[in-house]
Write a protein that binds this DNA or RNA. Structure first.
Lengths: 191, 191
DNA sequence: GCTTGACGAGACTAGTGGTCTCGAATTATA
DNA sequence: TATAATTCGAGACCACTAGTCTCGTCAAGC
């Protein structure tokens, strides 16, 4: 593998871009952040952004994942309701307060609706979270569901979260986390 | 109430605008529909659109509600699972096929994320559907849930629908409708 | 017939995502 | 040391579109 000639990619520029994006996202909210502003704040040419990312939401998605890299874990103590409560509380916590990721996630979901190609990439991000919960529901002795029903249950869990996040008609707080876990654990019999 | 002087609002123009919007929405999808195109197709000046609607998504929202004005009903036979299945099947049916409303709903949800003022108006549309299901869950003898848990259950139902609609990772078909109804009916005991 | 306000048409503004170009800086290879 | 490849920051530039403004015309009440 012969080394390529030419200047190498600047890691400093990459970090500056992702950092500036995150800062601006927090300061102004997704809709008010422009690529020009990111470039200026990062002290970078706009072309440097478009050389490494296809579109604006792709930059934001990477800024998000680079920041929230520590994955939230889903414990398996054998008590589904408890495990789910822990997981959902931790997840919902990232959606509130001044460090909330909700505005970013909402912006990305909006872009995914307007750009089918980005949706495919965004789905990869989403899928990781779904797989985590799906595995826990499949192994739950409390539930006796076929694979398709497990999938539906997973979507009811994340669906409720997204639905509340997108419409902002009700909170995604600790109490909600407990109730979702309770209702899921109660599904298909048992109490 | 003295009649106002001046030319009256043209109902023909209103209908032409909403009709053209719906046509274009079907033909091109939300993201590809411009206000100019709606005006041209409707044979109307752009100002006539902006005189009666604040923004593009407001036009689309009214085109949607004017078209899907017949509300889907939620029966109450005493059998929650059955009633929910009926309701969800009917609802999901509007989201598939060539007449699918999904692209329109997705576009509006995207706009709602980028424009907080429109979100408030969009939420009114959403709220009507939530209220229908909430009432049915509250009256369900199969369930014994406090008000907050009912709200969560409602959001799990519609959340699953929206989540699948927005991410397109799984269908919203009759089988899904049945499974959602099954899982909800199973919540908090019972089988 | 006069005033008011809506009408179709279209010019216009403002903002933004994304592309293109340029001279300078880096890096591998010869 | 030279050369070719490739990145960098900077900024001009293009394309598109939501929304505003203007204008001459048309309809309705007084």
């Amino acid at each position: 593998m012969a080394g390529q000639p030419g200047r190498k990619r600047s890691e400093a520029a990459r970090d500056a871009i992702l950092g500036a994006a995150l800062e601006l996202l927090r300061e102004r909210g997704y809709g008010q952040v422009t690529v020009d502003a990111i470039a200026t704040r990062a002290g970078v040419g706009k072309q440097t952004i478009y050389r490494w990312w296809r579109t604006k939401p792709d930059v934001v998605l990477e800024a998000l994942t680079a920041h929230a890299h520590r994955t939230i874990t889903l414990p398996d103590t054998g008590d589904l309701e408890r495990d789910l409560t822990v997981f959902l509380r931790a997840t919902f916590r990232t959606l509130s307060g001044s460090e909330s990721l909700a505005p970013i996630l909402r912006g990305l979901m909006a872009e995914a609706q307007l750009d089918p190609e980005f949706l495919a990439r965004f789905r990869v991000f989403i899928e990781a979270r779904r797989a985590l919960v799906r595995a826990r529901l499949q192994s739950a002795r409390e539930l006796a569901l076929d694979a398709a029903s497990v999938d539906v249950a997973v979507d009811m869990i994340f669906g409720a979260m997204w639905y509340r996040m997108l419409l902002e008609h009700a909170p995604t707080d600790a109490a909600t986390a407990r109730r979702v876990a309770q209702l899921v654990a109660g599904m298909a019999g048992g109490e």
